[in-house]
Design a protein around this nucleic acid. Structure first.
Lengths: 117, 117
DNA sequence: TTGATACATGTCACTAATGGAATATAATGC
DNA sequence: GCATTATATTCCATTAGTGACATGTATCAA
């Protein structure tokens, strides 16, 4: 059976950015479009490694690619950050909604003897 | 040698949220503090599994824990969302700064014949 | 103390993913 | 055509991580 695709599910964005090396590749693209060789040079990683990481990032849509001559220029693909943004927003909201309760908790923890003193 | 700690490095928060099951555990805590058994019941995962995931989340600081009787109440730890916020902000800014260039690119791609028509 | 509950930890098998080296493909230049 | 550059892909060994089961530890109850 095993019909579930496990390569480019939207939630795999989380997996894609989980590896430090992959975030380094993304970082290298922050300054703009770059060829694979440039990334290899900037990060001193092996070329196959960079290509493989780019492939993963490409599959989940975090980078896109356009061929120019015999090179391939990769660049960040803004749209695919959305699942991550939404995920984060959900927690930010939940935590803001409960700030008062957290406050209570902190008071309790920091003054275990209570307020009499 | 191998002196590098690899358990609670700050960037491992990205690794912590990479697994769907771990995000489910975090989701279960959105409504507030919960005991391990409650999470086990809500998610129908095995108790050791939940405990292990909580351990990972705890090591990177995404959840905190306080013992109450023979139970342990876990809750989200807001402060550790900061690495995500910072990481995301970096990319959002970089992408906004380059929106015009992206625009150029899209025009180029969508009109491969140029503007003479 | 004994027993029961709530949780943590250890062990193990298995899978998946990484990184390295070699090789394949594609485009350019001659 | 052939050689070279740029990148992708395959193969392989190693490793890390997951999940299942069993066991350990701590707290409560009687």
């Amino acid at each position: 059976m095993r019909l579930m695709a496990r390569s480019s599910a939207p939630s795999d964005v989380f997996n894609a950015i989980a590896k430090p090396h992959r975030r380094e590749v993304l970082d290298a693209l922050i300054t703009g479009e770059k060829a694979v060789g440039t990334i290899v040079h900037d990060l001193s990683m092996s070329q196959p490694q960079v290509s493989k990481h780019l492939r993963v990032l490409s599959k989940v849509g975090l980078v896109s690619c356009r061929p120019v001559g015999r090179r391939r220029l990769y660049r960040l693909a803004p749209a695919r950050l959305q699942p991550f943004q939404e995920w984060l927003a959900k927690y930010e909201q939940a935590l803001n909604d409960r700030l008062d309760r957290v406050d209570d908790y902190l008071r309790e923890v920091q003054q275990p003897q209570g307020e009499r003193q």
